[in-house]
Amino acid sequence: MPTLIRRQDDDQFNLGDDPFTAVADDEGLPPGDVIISFTRFQAEGDRLLAEGRAVGVRLEPAEEVEALAYDLPRIAVVALAFPKYRDGRAYTAARLLRQRFSYAGEVRAVGEVLREQAGFMVRCGFDAFAPADGASPADWAHAVHRHRHVYQRAADLRTPAYVEREGG
């Protein structure tokens, strides 16, 4: 079974099994839990969920997260795609999932996912990562914890500098 880096509640990172199979639109569906495109989800999602499977949806950067809003409670994973690591649209999508739609399921980063993005991703609410650069959970944790301070409030629970200062 393939593995993923997952963020734990205590902000540590470990390697976990990935029970989901990512299925392209032109592939047949294997048994078990699957991650499919939004288009395929619209056509086949109801049926797959009725079969008792856990279903994840993959969103491309141009697909608007609002379109998923209604279905979020029944989606186990939202996989946000980074076709290139320079494409930053998924950061907005993740923040909206967490902060605007209070989505509690897994938000997974897929595609060109590199450890240099780890800090940004965690702050925006991603909690599962399929790195393309072979990064280990230790690399991931190192990148995420590198900065002792942050200036903004975001989707994670980190205390922004302006709150930290009030305490000091």
């Binding site: 690591y85 320079r86 494409d87 930053g88 950061y91 907005t92 923040r95 993005q117 800090g119 940004f120 702050r123 925006c124 900065h147 942050v150 200036y151 903004q152 975001a154 989707a155 500098a161």
Partner: peptide, 14 residues
């Protein structure tokens, strides 16, 4: 300056 420094959402703009 502070708000934009390593902004989590806006560091990979078009």
């Amino acid at each position: 300056r502070q708000w934009s420094s390593l902004h989590p959402e806006f560091s990979f703009l078009p």
